[in-house]
Design a protein around this nucleic acid. Structure first.
Length: 479
DNA sequence: GCGATCAGTT
DNA sequence: CACAACTGATCGC
């Protein structure tokens, strides 16, 4: 099961590209099971140990520090523990034990349901006989590009039959999932920033990484390829493809559409036949302000709080890459320096080679008035304890959680209506800083491109939402 | 003991 | 409530 297939041989891709039943309404869910058996480990791992152990901590930026040693790596249990304000281990609060047991019970209830639902008896289930639909995880159709040997963001399916070029649109877990130092199924095409992250965070063998410059045309397996800035996270790209037969495809990966995208020469020069679209917020209820407006709000708010209380610690939450502009803007417009973040995130941010960012960082929590912390840490309780660890240096915390969903039509784009949650000296603002297109931005982009066919890549698993989106597309494209 | 996958969290 | 994107727990080799 180790076939070397050329572009022309790749018969598994439906030539007419209509197997997905999205436009013509034909019912073929079978397209999805165009069976590639998971041929996971059919090849000896011939990778050399080029990456040092130091880098093998995955994308978890916190894994390089901390208090517990695991396989030669230091892995932290908990930020508060590591700063010495909370005991580790033996904390035998009966509360946590109870919730553990609750979870266990919940779990086993789920299992009971499972074997019943899938028509297995309990013995079969416990023996590990898995229902068929769980067993076969094959690459969904919308990750394959018909008429090419290409896939996009499809790394968790082992070797994909007929695929000789694997594109990665950007470095977020739900897109790169499946990549590791053991990847050996074929070349990975991505931007140079993403390429560096594959090396630094996942130790993917360099011989599989093919970095492409933005806005430059390449020819790969007979297809003209161009990556375009996606306005998502650093390194994120739209993938523009022109096949030999004249068809043009655009895969947006994850993106935030904007007016300026509409003046990209290649989008003006070639009519797009098929659009693979990031439909994350493809519902009229998602209206949020531009990034600039949100950043302006964040800066204004920060200024206000600092005037009231100069000894305020500013905190911005972020999980992996993305949202950099939020804390950069605070730092730049209010001359707040340096920025503290942990060593691992710092390494990642500095790898962008972004001169505005690099050079602003410090290792010292105590000497920095602006901290970038994991989003999951941004709660009232945690921040309050955090403030205590910085004894006396600060006497209040102002935190921002930049997330996409925050607002629906009611609150709309009136940023000043945002009410923070606060307790004592800790204030937390959720701000609608989105790195995906709003509904209107999506609509405008689609109306600009006027593709013949749109394949949603998000929210596409239920037929209900697929139909809903298709109705919207039809409406946008009529007349 | 490890990586892969699932389920739960914000 | 939403939701993408994580994190931690459990599974299976």
């Amino acid at each position: 099961m180790d076939l070397e297939i050329t572009a022309e041989d790749s018969t598994f891709f439906c030539e007419d590209g209509d197997e997905n039943g999205l436009l013509n309404g034909s019912s073929s869910d079978e397209a999805e099971s165009t069976s590639e058996p998971r041929s996971g480990n059919d090849r000896p791992n011939m990778l050399s140990e080029f990456a040092s152990e130091f880098y093998s901590g995955g994308s978890d930026y916190s894994s390089l520090m901390g208090n517990k040693k695991k396989n030669g790596l230091f892995v932290q249990k908990n930020l508060l523990q590591m700063w010495g304000i909370e005991k580790s281990g033996a904390a035998d609060s009966s509360e946590s034990r109870v919730s553990m047991e609750n979870r266990k019970r919940k779990k086993s209830e789920n299992e009971k349901e499972q074997w019943a639902v899938f028509g297995l008896n309990q013995k079969e289930f416990e023996k590990g006989k898995k229902p068929a639909i769980v067993q076969s995880r094959s690459c969904p159709f919308y990750k394959k590009i018909p008429g090419t040997p290409f896939t996009v963001d499809a790394f968790r399916y082992g070797a994909i039959e007929g695929c000789s070029a694997y594109f990665l649109s950007h470095f977020h877990y739900d897109h790169y999932g499946g990549l590791s130092k053991r990847w050996c199924h074929g070349p990975i095409y991505c931007t140079s920033i993403t390429a560096r992250l594959l090396n630094i965070c996942l130790s993917v063998n360099k011989r599989y990484i093919c970095a492409l410059e933005l806005d430059k045309e390449y020819e790969i397996e007979g297809v003209k390829v161009m990556l375009i800035e996606a306005n998502h996270c650093p390194g994120a790209a739209l993938i523009h493809l022109r096949l030999r037969d004249g068809r043009t495809y655009l895969h947006t990966g994850d993106f935030r559409a904007s007016k300026s995208m509409q003046s990209h020469p290649i989008l003006l020069s070639y009519h797009v036949n098929v659009l693979y679209l990031d439909t994350t917020y493809c519902n009229p209820k998602y209206r949020f302000p531009s990034k600039e407006e949100v950043i302006d709000f964040v800066v204004r708010t920060t200024r206000k709080y600092l005037q009231k209380q100069p000894k305020t610690l500013i905190v911005v939450g972020a999980y992996s890459i993305g949202k950099e502009r939020v804390y950069l803007a605070i730092s730049q417009s209010l001359q707040i320096l340096p920025i503290y973040t942990d060593a691992s995130r710092r390494r990642i941010l500095e790898s962008f080679g972004w001169s505005e960012l690099s050079g602003r960082f410090s290792n010292s929590r105590h000497s920095s008035p602006l901290h970038v912390l994991p989003l999951s840490f941004l709660g009232l309780e945690n921040l309050n304890k955090y403030l205590e660890t910085l004894n006396q240096r600060f006497n209040a915390v102002l935190a921002f959680r930049p997330t996409g969903w925050t607002f629906s039509e009611a609150t709309g784009s009136k940023l000043d209506m945002i009410k923070p949650t606060s307790r004592g000296n800790v204030t937390i603002f959720g701000v609608p800083y989105s790195e995906h297109s709003s509904f209107n931005e999506l609509r405008d982009f689609v109306k600009f491109l006027r593709p013949e066919k749109i394949i949603p890549t998000v929210n596409a698993s239920s037929s209900g939402s697929r139909d809903k989106m298709q109705a919207l597309f039809n409406n946008w494209l009529k007349s």
